[in-house]
């Protein structure tokens, strides 16, 4: 049997992908390489050795792989942590993912890591810092980053301008965009930032990946807040946003994310198939 070769493109194929979970290793490994790609959080592989890295090695040889970071704190006050960057770079160099993405968010202040994606203020000074941090990261990794738009639970300063800040940060740093459609639905529900505002402002040609996930409603002091929990199926609203974006702009790599209440592989594949069908519909419509 010949060894599968890695895709040579610098972006993922415009097909549907899946967040890779250890419990689905065998089923995922048996997938057809032409119909799926996989995404991992590199932070879960920041170990010195052992089965976890061996496992990822097997996947990276067979499938197009994307690294989706959650720990760089690009939107933070502090510069990206050098130790974290070094660990990330060694993984990037070893497994050569097709894409590397991170969040427009912060998760570290001083020596505390908050294990969450916190929104920075949408201000000019914040934008300048963000651009510096993306620049520094891209230079360190020698890679172009994709930047993901954040979810909002709180009306951060300047939140109405967040879509513009998101695009401007990518433009100034030469990064590309990972457009999370669940996050724009969460922003709309929590701070009344309309999804159309994002769709109007975000240039389609800069979007190199789309994320879909489920959110969960949580009562806080009697008020419902939508949490970007990734522990539920993709909502109808988010599927509609995907159809809208793809119909207007053509096919993109689309990822189904699930980080909690992990269902069986077949359930995730059903969502994957739905995304694939929307993408192939767009390809057929555009010839």
């Amino acid at each position: 049997m010949s060894k599968p070769t890695k895709p040579k493109s610098i972006n993922l194929p415009a097909i549907a992908g899946l967040g890779l979970k250890p419990e689905h290793y065998h089923e995922a490994m048996a997938c057809d390489t032409d119909r799926i790609w996989f995404e991992v959080h590199p932070e879960n592989y920041m170990v010195d050795g052992g089965p976890r890295l061996a496992w990822l090695g097997g996947f990276s040889e067979k499938f197009a792989l994307s690294f989706h970071g959650i720990g760089l704190s690009l939107g933070g006050l502090d510069r990206p942590d050098r130790q974290h960057l070094s660990r990330l770079k060694s993984l990037v160099d070893r497994f050569n993912p097709v894409q590397v993405s991170e969040h427009l968010a912060w998760s570290r202040l001083g020596d505390v890591y908050f294990a969450d994606l916190l929104p920075p203020p949408a201000t000019k000074s914040s934008l300048d810092r963000l651009v510096d941090h993306i620049d520094e990261t891209q230079e360190f990794l020698n890679r172009k980053l994709l930047i993901e738009n954040p979810s909002l639970y709180l009306p951060i300063p300047g939140f109405a301008e967040l879509p513009q800040l998101y695009v401007e940060a990518a433009r100034r740093s030469g990064a590309e965009l990972l457009f999370d459609l669940n996050n724009i639905a969460v922003c709309a529900a929590n701070v009344l930032l309309p999804t159309d505002r994002w769709l109007d402002v975000v240039p389609a040609e800069m979007v190199k990946e789309i994320h879909l996930a489920g959110a969960t409603a949580r009562k806080i002091s009697g008020e419902t807040v939508m949490i970007d929990s990734h522990d539920a199926p993709v909502s109808d609203q988010v599927w509609q946003l995907l159809e809208q974006f793809i119909a207007a702009n053509g096919a993109r790599p689309v990822l189904i994310e699930r980080d909690g209440n992990i269902p069986g592989f077949s359930e995730l594949m059903a969502e994957h198939e739905r995304a694939a069908s929307i993408l192939s519909g767009a390809v057929a419509a555009n010839g």
Partner: peptide
């Protein structure tokens, strides 16, 4: 986030300050 107290963010978010509990919960 580190405390159980919404008080520090009341000046930032006014009546929405209690939503900081969403981030506190995730952390």
């Amino acid at each position: 986030i580190l405390s159980m107290d919404d008080e520090p963010v009341k000046s930032l978010f006014g009546p929405f300050a209690n939503r900081i509990d969403a981030h506190r919960g995730s952390f």
